[in-house]
Design a protein around this nucleic acid. Structure first.
Length: 878
RNA sequence: GGGCGAUUAGCUCAGUUGGUUAGAGCGUCUGAUUUACAUUCAGAAGGUCAGGGGUUCAAGUCCUCUAUCGCCCACCA
């Protein structure tokens, strides 16, 4: 048998094998089951363009732990998988691909191009799915969805039309975020602000009636001056009071523009006079509307200057900026340039600087959608973990802006709006492609050319992924959503709104927001920084279980993770430890005996103390693990299992029973604990636990995946050291309000006890502790067993008839404790002296304000009281 | 300008109703091991828990102020 089990665990021998086994036996599948309660998670659908990175690895490991745990707990656990069509991202990828053939998407035309995208998707779109399988994700793959599936597209259209009918969708000319590279509008969330080191340019605009006089305006984007149609000043500003209504000559363009006055102008900023470019700035836009100014666009959609830009036509915006500045300088119209840090929106797909751009787009009115979504969270129907994200969510929701949903790209859900070319301006929304205009009956109709924001389909994900009503009724609302903080606004908030709007139900009950995976220097992992640790490489080198375990054990709830490769050694070592402990047990297990005794449950009295101890530790660990998992403290749960299995079960229990390993009780207990530990560790490390469970298992053709989570045996008390140490401490400090439960009867004068301490300590330390316990607990006899005795050979025999087993992690040092209190007293007394001296000083009393004196007197009083108390404790110690 | 997080051992970090002598992993040093595992075992060194003030018998933990770093949000031209 020994020959069969290698000394080292090799993940490559097991992982793919068991994954295949699970899939072939359909163990991931969930179906409506009237006798079971459902537990549902929908995966945050990765982009089809995605490849697995550490963020995915963390995100999906957490989901898999939850799913596997709940499945073992007896719930009908469904993990719904799928991918997102990721409009802009995917289009960019395919555009790059065809660029290698020297083609642009316009060369192919819309239909051909979309065909190419689909072809690309067929070929590469399931990369990330394969990678998730490598990780061990137990998704119900037969339900895999794609946000451009036919049924899904129907749901998107339905949602659009429903909103349209309620009047929540409208078209308008607004200043939106425009990405000149992707050539599309973006929502506010898609254009995050980044700090830039920019300049503030002071430009001189001459007056029409006196070209030698100027008004000076400050701007960070001088190229937009070509589109200026006014200069605004604050009516309260004395400097400019008389100038309102005067006419200026816009340099370079020589257009006449007026000085207008508006209270919105900040007098403190720049010169207090601001150039107004209504077509290229959101503030200026509203000024333009209010004052009926002209809207002059000076750029093409690709951010080259257009025909309104005079001599600068066709220059790129940044090139034009330089030339314009040169020209102004030459004319003496550039007063000065100051360094000015500013923040500008950047495209979240290609990082190009966003251009605020005036264009006609489709919007969703958000206020009425947000209202119930705010309520749901405020009333606690949906909970965020960690809680602090609630505030972030509410803050965003309460200041929500209308959502720009149209994108000028080709890959995506085409907006289900048709225009009648005969009776102009009539737009109609329809799920089915209409045949004729509903107003004039003309068949001369055309569909809107834009597509919807990708997130307009993702926000339906928790319900649009269910094909049958039966499934929807059973699995929706889902249970938990596990995701990263970056997409709270993009996705989480919008799903809550969509769930309530379209299903009239919240989409999930719990939202667990985990941290961001960063490199060891705290930078976000990204391709461009070259600091990526590739999860697949880690799986290859250390195994998926090691990756999962390490990742989980270092991720404190919701905190960012700083990752380096060495971190995965811990997981690999743990896997190896589990492997070898199992190997040892398998080598020494009398399987025949285990099989016949399987149904026999021991009475606790019949078990040796060692066995009772390890059982108590196992169940108490299990209890803590369940508690941690219930609170989304995955690292805690993982580390509890790690500590128990390695440092208690292996280092102590197995070492102790080695001497008497054929004892039937020892056989049974070591078997039980191993088998149950494997089950408890399975959600974290699915592959190795399956492999070992199979080797250990009496029943064949089954899987650890579908075993039940171990039950906590209630009759076994935890024999941890806390209680006795609490007693000791209580006596020492004389503090009575500590909770006290002692295994030794309080009046134990006649009881002899042997205490087993499964940790190594110096001989003197153990002996001094022995004496303390003996006198404090009033025990007649007491023997402490410890590592130094194990080495000397007495170990096994003494353990056998010990009365109490205490894993001892420390020993109270009375002297040290006294010292600590004394030093506190000294410190406080010194302070009292100082204060008394100060308060005795006549000068101080005369000059200091009365409040200060009173405050000091108060402090002195407190200090004196404190010293009294401390002295009381000190005396009690004597 | 608002909001949030972090500050604990040489390094990376845990520490959720305040309560043993503040822990883990890695690193360093010392020692052990023919007999499951060197991806092992035992031990040592290393901390005024960022700083000040407060509440408490008791504070890393609660309150308050300050400092440094990081993140998010915001229409400062």
């Amino acid at each position: 048998m020994i020959d069969e089990i290698p000394k080292q665990y090799n993940p490559k021998d097991t992982e793919d094998k068991w994954y295949k086994f699970w899939e072939e036996n359909n163990l991931f599948a969930a179906k409506t089951n009237p006798v079971k309660k459902p537990y549902t998670i929908v995966i945050p659908p990765p982009n089809v363009t995605g490849i697995l990175h550490m963020g995915h690895a963390l995100n999906n490991t957490i989901q898999d732990i939850l799913i596997r745990y709940q499945r073992m707990k007896g719930l009908e656990a469904l993990w719904m998988p799928g991918t997102d069509h990721a409009g802009i991202a995917t289009q960019n990828v395919v555009e790059k691909a065809i660029a290698k053939e020297g083609l642009k998407r316009q060369d192919l035309g819309r239909e051909k191009f979309i065909e190419r995208v689909w072809a690309w998707k067929e070929q590469y779109g399931s990369t990330i799915i394969r990678q998730l399988k490598k990780l061990g994700a137990s998704c119900d793959w037969k339900r895999e969805r794609f946000t451009m599936d036919e049924e899904y597209s129907e749901a998107v259209k339905d949602a659009f039309v429903m909103l349209w009918k309620k009047g929540l969708i409208y078209q308008d000319d607004k200043i939106i975020n425009w990405c000149p590279r992707c050539q599309t509008a973006l929502s506010d969330e898609e254009a995050p602000h980044r700090e830039l080191q920019g300049n503030l340019y002071y430009l001189k605009y001459p007056f029409k009636d006196n070209p030698d006089e100027f008004i000076v305006v400050a701007t960070t984007r001088p190229e937009t001056m070509l589109g200026d149609t006014a200069v605004a000043v604050n009516p309260k500003d004395k400097r400019y009071k008389k100038l309102a209504g005067k006419t200026l000559i816009l340099p370079l363009i020589n257009r006449e523009i007026k000085i207008i006055s508006d209270t919105i102008v900040d007098m403190q900023f720049g010169t207090g006079a601001v150039k107004v470019t209504p077509a290229h700035d959101p503030n200026d836009y509203s000024l333009g509307k209010k004052h009926h100014l002209e809207f002059i666009k000076v750029m093409h959609p690709d951010a080259r200057m257009n025909e309104n830009a005079g001599d600068y036509q066709n220059m790129d915006r940044l090139e034009a900026r330089e030339v314009i500045l040169e020209d102004l300088k030459e004319k003496g119209l550039l007063e000065k340039v100051e360094l000015h840090p500013l923040s500008a929106g950047h495209c979240y797909r290609c990082h190009t600087i966003i251009e605020p751009y005036l264009s006609r787009q489709w919007f969703v009115k958000m206020a009425s959608l947000a209202k119930p979504a705010i309520e749901a969270v405020k009333k606690g129907k949906i909970k965020f973990h960690p809680q602090r994200w609630t505030k972030v969510y509410l803050n965003w929701m309460e200041n929500i802006q209308d959502w720009c949903i149209s994108r000028q790209i080709w890959w995506g859900h085409r907006i289900p709006i048709w225009y009648c070319l005969d009776c102009k301006n009539a737009a109609m929304a329809s799920v089915e492609t209409p045949v004729k205009c509903i107003k004039c009956g003309s068949t001369n109709i055309e569909q809107d050319r834009d597509v919807l924001d990708t997130w307009f389909s993702s926000w339906l994900w928790p319900f649009a992924t269910f094909k049958s009503k039966e499934d929807l009724r059973y699995f929706y609302p889902t249970s938990s959503l596990v995701t990263a903080p970056e997409i709270i606004f993009f996705w989480v908030a919008r799903m809550i709104m969509a769930g309530l709007e379209f299903q009239n139900k919240i989409p999930f009950k719990d939202v667990y927001i985990h941290g961001t995976v960063r490199d060891i220097e705290g930078k976000k992992m990204s391709k461009s920084l070259g600091n990526i640790i590739d999860p697949l490489e880690i799986i290859n080198e250390y195994g998926a279980d090691a990756l999962r375990f390490s990742l989980i054990s270092i991720t404190a709830q919701g905190q960012d993770v700083y990752l380096s490769k060495e971190r995965f050694e811990q997981g690999r070592n743990f896997a190896n430890k589990i492997w070898n402990a199992s190997r040892f047990i398998l080598m020494n297990l009398d399987t025949a005996q285990i099989k016949t005794d399987l149904c026999v449950f021991f009475k606790k009295e019949g078990l040796s103390l060692t066995n009772r101890w390890i059982l108590s530790r196992f169940y108490s660990t299990l209890k803590d693990v369940e508690k941690s998992l219930g609170n989304y403290q995955f690292n805690e749960a993982a580390n509890l299992l790690y500590g128990f299995f390695w440092h208690e079960f292996c280092d102590w229990y197995l070492e102790i029973i080695k001497a008497d390993i054929q004892n039937p009780h020892n056989q049974m207990v070591m078997y039980k604990i191993l088998e149950k530990s494997l089950r408890a560790m399975h959600p974290f490390m699915p592959f190795i636990t399956e492999e070992l469970w199979q080797r250990l298992s009496a029943s064949e053709d089954s899987s650890i995946m579908i075993q039940s989570w171990p039950h906590i045996q209630g009759d076994i008390i935890d024999l941890k050291s806390e209680r006795i140490m609490a007693e000791v401490l209580e006596i020492i400090t004389g503090i009575r309000n500590m909770r006290l439960e002692l295994d030794i009867p309080p009046q134990a004068d006649n009881i002899a006890a042997k205490i087993f301490i499964p940790h190594n300590h110096k001989k003197e330390v153990v002996e001094s502790f022995t004496e303390q316990i003996k006198s404090l607990a009033r025990l007649k006899q007491l023997t402490i067993l410890s590592e130094y005795k194990r080495a000397s050979g007495e170990f096994a025999s003494v353990v056998k008839d010990a009365h109490i087993v205490i894993p001892l992690f420390g020993v109270i040092d009375l002297e040290k404790h006294k010292e600590k209190i004394s030093s506190k007293i000294n410190k406080a007394e010194a302070e009292i002296n100082a204060k008394e001296k100060m308060l005795g000083d006549k000068n101080f009393l005369k000059r200091a304000p009365r409040e200060i004196v009173e405050k000091e007197q108060e402090k002195l009083k407190n200090l004196k009281e404190r010293v009294q108390k401390l002295k009381g404790v000190r005396d009690a110690l004597k």
